[in-house]
């Protein structure tokens, strides 16, 4: 699924667009606990859906090679968070949907979870 399709499905507002709006997203992780994000071993071209609207989410996304982040419940990131994502080339969107509805719509549209555990 492309980044642009995800923006449409989540009726999201783009904070930082992907360099390439045809960027293909292949897997999703939804968590507010950052170590959980670091727990998956297989996360190809991955999207993070989180309610944790701070720089920690961006930093962890960078370490885990996440391509794009969704903040739910209309949580607007502060300047620092946006700036960090910009520097790390991570696309960034905000949806007014809850985590449940955001996950549900993307799952129903065919996206699947990151899998596996590290080693």
């Amino acid at each position: 699924m492309t980044f642009k399709e995800i923006v449409d499905i989540l009726e999201a507002e783009i904070v930082l667009d992907s360099d390439d709006s045809d960027t293909e997203i292949q897997s999703v992780c939804s968590t507010d606990l950052m170590s959980d994000l670091l727990h998956f071993s297989s996360m190809p071209r991955s999207l993070l859906i989180t309610g944790l609207a701070n720089t920690q989410a961006v930093r962890t996304a960078e370490i885990a090679d996440i391509k794009a982040i969704v903040f739910v419940l209309d949580k607007k990131p502060d300047k620092e968070t946006v700036e960090m994502a910009r520097q790390k080339d991570i696309a960034f969107i905000v949806t007014r949907l809850s985590r449940f509805t955001a996950c549900g719509r993307l799952y129903a549209a065919g996206l699947r979870s990151c899998t596996g555990e590290n080693r």
């Binding site: 950052m34 170590s35 701070n54 920690q56 962890t60």
Partner: peptide
């Protein structure tokens, strides 16, 4: 803040 899950 998203930490302290005991996975570190």
């Amino acid at each position: 803040m998203g930490w302290g899950a005991g996975m570190g």
